[in-house]
Simulated scan of single mutants.
Amino acid sequence: MAVIGAAGACGRQVVTQLLNRSLLDPDSRLQLIGHRGGSSANEMHGLRSDLRDAFADDAPVIELIDDPDAVDADLVVMIAGATVPTDPTANVDRALLAESNRRLFETYADALAARAGGQPLVIVQSNPVELGVAVFAARLERHRVVGAGAWSDTLRFRREIADSFGVRRTAVRAAMIGQHGDHLVPVWSRVQVHGVDEAELAAWVAGQRRGRSLADLPAEIVAQRGRLLAMVGAGDVGGAFAAVEELPADLRAALKPFLVHYTAGHTTEIVTAHAVVDLIALAMAGDDIQRPLQIRLDGEIGGISGVIGLPVLFGPAGWQWVTPPQIEQDEMDALLACLDSIAAANAFARA
């Protein structure tokens, strides 16, 4: 297994959670990938020593790599690259983020495509996730490339619903699909909560939606994010977290990561890594399980080609197509609209 960006905050969490869950045995190889000439190349020495101190005889063989051509793993996690600005008052521009990380994606995708032997399974969690998936899927077999962003968003959405009903997250069935960004799509029509009858759930969902259109959700996210981050910038962090709790569950799931980012060390590394390690566990378990993931379509839905987050079966061989999601028309419209946003960001990165 290889983790590209292992020395970063999210990468450290991935390898720590990976070993804490005992997903790799002592005979396995774990490659920690850093940037040659950068600080990460030095930091990985300390990270390896720290991991061995923590996990001792249970730790896998840990290799330090600073050359993309030396990456040699069956499963590769892409979690390196620039993130959103550290200033809460700055504009969050995913197109500019795409331009920053495109060359990094291409460097590692080209190296993996050129290596001898079979192709690895690649899990992308760097942003923009959709661009990362597009780059790797253009060079590798597309069914062996997935993005974990939709699963991260789904975990957040389910947690917000669970909190609303006072149940465990495992009692909730719900999904966030579309873009890992402002154009995410909450699938309200398919929400289920174990132990809650249909009438009560329908009334709660109606209250959450409040007559709001999914077509307007991206604009809502932008407006509310500006309001909340202005509070953070003014030092009213407690007020910002209190204000976000007054919003519907879909907005809470979309906006809380920004509050976390700007108040907890400029990262949401714990849940970001948790989503990746969940997928690693599935890939190693042997069974295909349905998860919302970013994938590259090639005409499976209405002739559409492009990267988007959808529920698919995922397992050791990558993702398999399942039947198109049975969702309402407004959800499908929002899903199709997000393709335009993704395409525009990716096109900017190629310009």
Rank of each mutant, 00 (worst) to 15 (best):
G149N: 04
V133I: 04
R156D: 03
E130A: 14
D110S: 14
L140A: 07
G118Y: 01
S126L: 07
H143Y: 05
A113H: 13
V129E: 02
V135M: 13
R156C: 04
N101S: 10
G147C: 11
A98Q: 12
L97K: 07
T154M: 05
E106D: 14
N127H: 07
N127R: 09
A98K: 09
L121V: 11
A113M: 09
R156E: 05
A138I: 02
H143P: 01
F157S: 05
L97P: 07
G117N: 12
G149A: 01
G166R: 03
P120Y: 13
A137F: 13
E130K: 04
S164Q: 04
R142Q: 06
A148R: 02
R158N: 10
S100G: 05
R139Y: 13
S100Q: 15
P88F: 04
D153R: 01
T154S: 14
R102T: 06
G117S: 13
V92C: 06
A148N: 09
I79V: 15
Y108V: 10
E160T: 07
T86R: 15
I79G: 13
P128H: 12
T83S: 15
R94A: 14
A80Y: 06
Q119S: 15
L131G: 03
G117W: 06
T107W: 01
L155F: 03
G149P: 05
V129D: 02
P128W: 12
A162E: 01
T107L: 14
T107P: 02
A150F: 00
R139N: 09
A113N: 07
T154N: 08
P88R: 02
T86Y: 11
S126C: 12
L155Y: 02
I123W: 04
D163Q: 13
L131K: 10
V146P: 01
I79Y: 06
E99P: 01
P85T: 06
W151F: 06
H143A: 12
G147F: 00
V146W: 02
A114Y: 08
F157E: 02
A98T: 12
I79R: 01
I123M: 05
A134T: 07
L97S: 11
T89W: 09
G81V: 12
A111G: 03
D153E: 10
A109P: 05
G166E: 14
G166M: 00
A137E: 07
N127D: 11
R168D: 14
P88E: 05
T107K: 15
F105C: 10
P120C: 11
V124W: 07
L97M: 13
V84H: 04
G118I: 01
I161D: 00
T154W: 08
A138Q: 14
R102D: 11
V84E: 00
A80P: 02
V167R: 00
A98R: 01
F157P: 03
L104F: 09
S126N: 13
A111P: 04
E99S: 15
G147Y: 03
V145D: 10
G118R: 15
E160A: 10
F136V: 03
V146G: 05
L140I: 06
V84I: 15
V133F: 04
A134Q: 14
D153F: 00
A138R: 09
N91W: 09
F157H: 03
Q119E: 15
N127F: 11
G149V: 05
